[in-house]
Design a binder for these strands. Structure first.
Lengths: 324, 324
DNA sequence: CTGAAAGCGCTTACAG
DNA sequence: CTGAAAGCGCTTACAG
């Protein structure tokens, strides 16, 4: 049970450790008969290569990290799940970090790169970073253009929101409200509010808006506030799916009927598979594609390739039962 | 920008690399004035220790892994989130693996231990493992006694379910149904069905049960099947919270009133924070404590300490609006 | 196609 | 309190 190393395999098989290493890494330049013998020895000895030796020597780890504010949230959970799947398929391990309970995690992820624990990271950052801290590091940002250097992946927030609001107008909605969690920092997500305001202005509609910074998991407060402040709107746009179920239930319990009395559209369109079919009309983000793209871009950066700084992916308008 | 190593720090500061290493690791035996000088040099050089050198030498990685079937599920998401928080606080990195899309991940996690990528793992295993594959590895299982060697952490499934069913009986329920996802393998979770059947028998009640193996995310099928098969029950016990919202909505849409016409209790009691307050009466698992315990046990194993093979944590009965 | 050698960047007894 | 040396387990030019 003493740990067996590549040296033991070399000795027992009668070959040099270079050759053993080549067999392990799948190097083509090894004679078939040699490979077979070495493979047999590996089996006999129950040899398992130690990754830390390899990582030290090769100068990369085959590990990436993903940072999200929270994991128990439909969008982030789905995103991380997709990413884990892709990373696994491509032979990468995935380290998970959540930042809402501990801001420090955003720093941690940078340090993990510097100390060679990971080759790079994909993050949904909510805090500020100095350029000097992030420049040159293999990073991909979701929804946020950090410093015009770190590439980011997002959805077409502006256009999608604009279309949604215009759709509401086309159905005859007169008093259209907006409920949104304001990002801690400048981000693509802020374009949802901008699109809303732009359309309101264009049509000479009065905006009814509650848009504040709250933590994930506390979106309900905004909804309650909105309903109290603007009890008589006839349509609501919710920027973020996490509150849409709550909004829906709230109006139902007030005796309002969808879509006759009130309409609702939410961004994200993540509905938990254990709930009923999509009830709320929503702008569905291409989460899987976002995960694929951000992974691909990160790997390209790691491999020194050129990458696009901006990647905006198309959302899908999914009609549910909350709009006319 | 050439990478700076511990040697550079030693040279520039005028000390040996052993001393530099001691400063980095916080060894007390270094003179204060020496420490300061070396710290200053580290700063000047922007030196960041390479973990792979240390890991190779120290023979452990400071990384653990968690494996769950899926992450986009209230129980697992919450569990992983708690675990990530604890691991981070204790200086461990956490690798995430999800197995439902790819069974192979369960093997992967074992290999990661053998190749020294991680020091150990906590897993919610759904597949079979040979004893020879897992014995001696630092593992903690959730909800499942794999082989009477791997320690496991679970909740008091049997007692909690028994109490819940008896509660339903005490309120006058006569036709009590059970909807559950059957685990792929023997597990503590199977005790929920056993408790249900035991109570039914004891009271001479007829059991109405739908209990089948389905994937996470496909629990709805069981619900639909149950309702079709037993349309006239007056109480339902759902083993697993993931379908309780669906069950609730389903009966409501059928025109039934909770708790007058039908009662509902679900195991888990995870409700998403973005939904309304707990509506469904539930048996709430102490997820945070389960994460803490499994982490602690894993670290103890890694450090060669003795650990209990069985850890059953107490659930909490949370009365909602779906029971009398 | 294969071997011998150098070296990745650390830590840890050991000696003083 | 500190230094010099050995070694953790690999990979990769280099030479043949």
């Amino acid at each position: 049970m003493a740990k067996v190393t590549i040296n033991d395999v070399a000795k027992k098989s009668g070959y040099g450790l270079g050759t053993v290493s080549r067999v392990i890494s799948g190097d083509k330049s090894v004679k078939d008969s040699t490979r077979e013998k070495i493979l047999k020895t590996i089996e006999e000895l129950h040899y398992v290569p130690n990754v830390n030796g390899a990582r030290l020597r090769k100068k990369h780890s085959g590990v990436i990290a993903v940072l999200v504010p929270v994991i128990n949230h439909p969008f982030f959970a789905e995103f991380v799940e997709c990413l884990e799947h892709i990373a696994g398929k491509e032979g990468y391990s995935l380290i998970l970090l959540t930042s809402q309970m501990d801001e420090q995690k955003e720093e941690d992820i940078l340090w993990k790169i510097r100390k060679k624990e990971i080759d790079g990271a994909i993050f949904v950052t909510h805090y500020e970073h100095k350029n000097e801290d992030i420049n040159g590091l293999p990073l991909v940002s979701i929804d946020r253009h950090l410093n015009h250097v770190v590439p980011f992946v997002s959805s077409n927030n502006y256009e999608a929101t604009k279309e949604a609001i215009e759709y509401l107008i086309s159905t005859g909605a007169k008093k259209i409200g907006f409920i949104g969690t304001k990002p801690f920092v400048e981000s693509e997500v802020t374009l949802r509010e901008k699109a809303y305001l732009d359309v309101m202005k264009e049509h000479n509609y009065t905006p009814y808006i509650v848009y504040e910074v709250v933590k994930h998991g506390e979106e309900k407060e905004l909804v309650d506030k909105f309903i109290e402040k603007y009890p008589d709107v006839d349509a609501v746009f919710a920027s973020g799916s996490s509150s849409s179920t709550y909004i829906y239930n709230k109006y139902v319990s007030m005796g309002k009927k969808f879509p006759e009395d009130i309409q609702l559209i939410s961004y994200d369109g993540v509905f938990n598979s254990w709930e009923d079919a999509p009830i709320v009309t929503s702008i569905e983000q291409p989460i899987k594609e976002m995960a694929e793209q951000s992974f691909k871009i990160l790997i390209d950066i790691i491999n020194g390739k050129e990458v696009n700084q901006i990647t905006l992916l198309k959302t899908k308008f999914v009609k549910g039962k909350t709009t006319k």
